[in-house]
Structures are given as structure tokens and as C-alpha cells.
Amino acid sequence: MAAAAAAGAGPEMVRGQVFDVGPRYTNLSYIGEGAYGMVCSAYDNVNKVRVAIKKISPFEHQTYCQRTLREIKILLRFRHENIIGINDIIRAPTIEQMKDVYIVQDLMETDLYKLLKTQHLSNDHICYFLYQILRGLKYIHSANVLHRDLKPSNLLLNTTCDLKICDFGLARVADPDHDHTGFLTEYVATRWYRAPEIMLNSKGYTKSIDIWSVGCILAEMLSNRPIFPGKHYLDQLNHILGILGSPSQEDLNCIINLKARNYLLSLPHKNKVPWNRLFPNADSKALDLLDKMLTFNPHKRIEVEQALAHPYLEQYYDPSDEPIAEAPFKFDMELDDLPKEKLKELIFEETARFQPGYRS
């Protein structure tokens, strides 16, 4: 834990890192770190609560700039109880001085990944967590956004079992017609939660990839272990087919990539493993919904509104309290091709509203 900075004593240090967030945020305490930044909790002297502050230093890398800009653009436009918001952003007053960006968010005690390492969940908890994931996802999908990296560590939890989806750095506007060349190379989302079509096709992607990830998360809540822990690309596919069985001819016809289709045709026939054999203690309604989410063919996979209306979630289902976005989200430009200098300018502009004396 960093010592509390005395008023006016300059930035606090946390594990050798400068955290320049005073005077409003003090009493910093280390939480963890990701690929390009550290997260601390801090005391907000204005709202009198502890908050989470993520320090991001992305400006050396085009990919990190892209992810940072995506996350900020999306989260500043989203407003939903099951999606983490941005409360404040701290950065230098000029673009030349801006080396880091500090993002202030609600402090959540833990995440689903940490929880599943230590606790076996009751059916009631599984049901409530799944409902909140789908409630947040309904809003995301209504904005025409794909999260693309749903996994237990991106689901934040607090002691009252509130759940918030975080990390929109890989999110995209849904565009089933656009052929994202190089899709697989830039697709760094965790393999275990990846839909089979991501490994088999490169053309376009749809909201059904997020539903697949939610199915993987439900299976993990039922058993405290990942359902498809593939060691590499082909191993991942083999794990999936080992449980779902061989795809039907109709399902194979959806695979545009001939090499991928021929690979699947070359494999020995596998039978589907019954879900109640894998999860003998699970609620039968939970397994019915799991089956509809972990469907090989993305066109037959359940959609988020149908999933919310499934009998497993009937005690929570309330369409009048499951809000959607006001308007579909649009990125003005494809960020993939922009140089990091341009992305830095866009991050600077996007964060201006939090600067003292800002006038829109």
C-alpha cells in the first residue's frame, strides 16, 4: 500500500510507478496490472468513496492506442447498470505532455475469474450472474457493438453480487458484411471463450460470437473449470467437437473457408456428449439454455433477447427493466489503419471533457 500523499506533496508512487492523480484522489492501494497499465484503488475526496484507477501508458504502440481509444469512446457513450462506466479521466493539459491516461471507475471487490478459483456457486448465484451478463449484453448488442472478449476476468463483482462487464478494448461495431482481413492475426481474445466460426472463417462476425462466450462462462460457473481449455488453435476446435459432436452437413455448409471445411470433413465422426453427463448436478433449465448458447452453427445460436426470456431466468426476466441503447454506435473511421500519432490526438480530444474549465 502506498503511503497517503500529504496535501501538495506531488504524485504518489505505487510499486515504483508514478500515479499522478492528486489532489482529488489519494490513499492509493495496488490492485493489479494488465498488459499496459496498473490498477489501484484510491480515495475520492470529492465523492467520499474509494474508486478504481487504471493507469494506461499506450502511446508507444499502435495496438494499445487503438484499444484505449475504443474503450474510452464506447464506455463514455454507454450507460447501463451492468456495464462499468467511466467516472473521470485524468491526463496532462497538453498533448505533448500526455504520456499516461488515468481512467477512474467504480471500485468492484472482485471478478468472476477470482471468485470461481475459490468458491463453488449455488444455482441461485449462477442464475443471477447469468441474468446480469445477458442484461448488459442486450444493451451492448442493441448499440450494434460486439464485445468480443467476454470471459470471467472481464466480469466485475461486488459483495452485493452486482455484476458489471468491463474491458471493451477489443470491441467492434457489428459488421457481418465487412471482410476484416487479418482478423485472426489481430484477434487476441482469450482462445477458450472463442466461437468456432472465428477459427473457421475470417469473413465478418456477428453478435452470436458473444453468446458463445457467455455459454462458455455459464459452463464454467457450473463446474469451476473452463469447458474448452484448448492449448492452441486446432486443439481448441477438437475440444469443442469432442463435446458438441461432429457438425451436420448443414452446419458445414455455413463454413465459407474450404480449407477449414475440408479439415472438419477429414475428422472421424464424434457423438455429442449429453450435458447432464458433463454437469450431473446442474439445473435442467440451465443445461437447456447452455445447449442453445453453445450451438456450433452461429445462425442457430440463441440471441440475447431470447436467452433473457428463457425459463431458467424467469424469476428475473423483465423486458421493461432491460434497457437498450438510445442509438446504434458508430465509429467515424476504422481505427485499425491509423498511425499511433493520430490515435493519440483522438484520445486527447475524447478525454477533453474531463479537463478543468472544459467548454463543449
Rank of each mutant, 00 (worst) to 15 (best):
V21M: 13
A309R: 02
S266E: 02
D162C: 02
E220A: 11
L170F: 01
K114I: 15
E197Y: 08
F19K: 05
H310I: 08
H61S: 06
G22Q: 06
V188L: 10
Y30P: 01
K117I: 11
G182Y: 11
Y233Q: 01
D210S: 06
S266R: 15
V214T: 11
Q306I: 06
P274A: 10
P23Q: 05
T94S: 15
L237H: 07
Y263F: 15
Y187P: 00
L338Q: 15
T351W: 00
K330Q: 06
H232G: 00
Q97R: 07
L112S: 03
D106S: 00
I89W: 11
P93A: 07
H147P: 10
H310Q: 13
R79P: 05
K48P: 06
P23M: 03
Y36H: 15
E12K: 12
I103E: 13
N27P: 07
F168P: 10
F228K: 00
D100I: 08
L112Y: 04
P298T: 14
L115V: 12
L234K: 05
I347P: 05
P58K: 15
T160Y: 08
R24V: 07
E334T: 02
P229K: 06
D332A: 13
G182I: 08
S142T: 13
D100N: 14
C127P: 05
S284V: 03
K164S: 08
P298S: 12
Y131I: 10
G169N: 13
M293H: 02
P247G: 03
E303L: 00
E314A: 12
P280F: 06
I347W: 15
R191Q: 13
D251A: 12
T118N: 09
L234I: 10
V39F: 14
I86L: 06
A6I: 14
R359W: 15
D288C: 06
R277V: 08
V51C: 12
G37K: 15
A171N: 01
S223A: 14
K203W: 07
Q249V: 07
F331Y: 15
S142F: 11
P152S: 12
V18E: 09
M221N: 02
E305S: 03
G204N: 07
M38F: 13
E250T: 12
T351R: 05
C161W: 03
E303Q: 01
D167R: 00
K207D: 03
K330V: 04
I31Q: 04
Y36L: 15
T26I: 15
L184M: 14
V304P: 08
S41R: 04
I256M: 04
G357Q: 12
G357K: 07
S266I: 13
T190D: 04
Q17K: 12
A4F: 00
T63C: 12
D100M: 11
Y205D: 13
N87Y: 15
K54C: 01
G32D: 02
F296C: 06
S246T: 00
C40L: 04
T181F: 04
E186R: 11
A6N: 01
L234F: 04
